[in-house]
Structures are given as C-alpha cells and as structure tokens.
C-alpha cells in the first residue's frame, strides 16, 4: 500500500472517529462540570461512611508542598488539580472530578 493511500485511509478513520471522541469529551466535560457544581457547596459526603468532608481547608499540595487556605482540589501555586482525596474519617478515597 502506498503512503498516500495510508494517509488517506487514516484521515477517513479520524473523520469517522472524530464525532465519537467529541461526544465522549463532551460527556466528560458535563460530568466534570456537574462534579464541580456539587463541589462548589464547599463539602462532600463520603459515599462510604457518610462523613461530611470540607473541601475548603488549610490544604497542602501533594506536588509542590504549598500549604494554603483554599480548596483541597486545586493548588493556587502550581495549579495542580487533585481529582480525589481521602475521607477525613474512614480514609477511603472520594473521587470528585
């Protein structure tokens, strides 16, 4: 198969796949936005033990080590996004984003 044919076939594949990826991405975005909206309340209940966990605390970033008053899901210094954190009571992981 010549290079031109390969490139053409690959292009057709991406064109067909693009909507699927776009839909998947949109679904993910919707999920993230939904989670973010819930997180804006400032707390989350642990799905395992039911303890209310505050999201805005004196948090330490696990990447850069900065400790600041703010969201435990986002570091204002290095912009690290934390998608999950351990419950304060039972230490089970709570996935947020």
């Amino acid at each position: 198969m010549s290079n031109t044919t390969k490139i053409a076939l690959l292009t057709i594949l991406y064109i067909f796949a693009a909507p699927i990826y776009a839909v998947k991405w949109l679904l993910r975005l919707a999920k993230v936005l939904r989670s973010f909206r819930a997180a804006r309340a400032g707390w989350l209940d642990c799905p395992h033990c039911g303890t209310r966990n505050a999201l805005n605390i004196l948090a330490t970033c696990r990447r850069c080590g900065t400790t600041e008053f703010g969201s435990r899901l986002f570091c204002g210094n290095c912009r690290q996004i934390t998608r999950a954190f351990p419950c304060d009571m039972c230490t089970a992981t709570i996935r947020v984003l």
Binding site: F36, A54, L55, N56, F69, G70, F74, G76, I81
Partner: peptide, 14 residues
C-alpha cells in the same frame, strides 16, 4: 473554574 472561585475558597477555608 477553580481560579474563579479561589477567593471564596480562601474565605471558606479560613
């Protein structure tokens, strides 16, 4: 989105 809410997060955390 987080940066937009940063100040409010700070006040709540305090």
């Amino acid at each position: 989105l987080f940066r937009r809410e940063q100040h409010e997060s700070y006040v709540r955390a305090l």
